[in-house]
Amino acid sequence: MYPENPGVALHRRHATILPTTATAVGMEDTLQRLAAFAVRLGQGEAIGPPWQAGYLPHGTRRVELRENSAASARWICSRRGCVTRLSAPKSRLPDVARVAPAPPVQDLAHAQIAIVTTSGLVPHGNPDKLRQSYSTEWKKYSIDGLSRLNPADWESIHGGFDTSAANTDPHLVLPLDALRALEGSAYGQLHSAYYVTAGVGTAVSAAQRMGAEIAAELVAADIGGVILTAT
């Protein structure tokens, strides 16, 4: 798996995962490494740490005995005048930042709610040429005065899932009809525009930048809370 694939974070503790390139371009090399690794596993060989054996870290630490105690290793080093270095994994997982939960919307009945989606839903014909995958940009489109999303006017250009259902009824990825029905009763009002990118193969760093840019706009617009639909 590509190290940024969400499946890595989900399964790396239970499965041994070899890193691949972002696309199928590196498949030949990957399969060779995979085959060699499988043979080693099959023969019951001891598999070393990830930075030696070339798999993605399981996220766990294993205790092992070294030939020399830490004290004697340090003593030998100081006699030789060498500098001890920690081995570093060659293939690091992207660090996923975590933040404490934001405080809840205080007064939902009067709050302005914004909708953000990674579903790639854009006006029909994709006038701004939003990329289908490996997105580095986001767009915002007005939904001011719109009560429904007419499938003739909108389409999902997302390159990572079957968009036929979303193209038949855009509400399946952007629930404007339900948000309008609840506007003014369950919550205050809906923000006049929605924000969109196509979330597939997006680098963590790009997603972080886009999130920060959208956040700055929403804070400036006095938004109380965000509903984000992810596909």
């Binding site: 975590r98 933040v99 934001a102 953000v116 886009m210 920060a212 929403l218 804070v219 965000v226 509903i227």
Partner: peptide
């Protein structure tokens, strides 16, 4: 994460 970092509940 970035939206919540700015205090916006998501």
């Amino acid at each position: 994460v970035e939206l919540e970092r700015c205090g916006l509940p998501v």
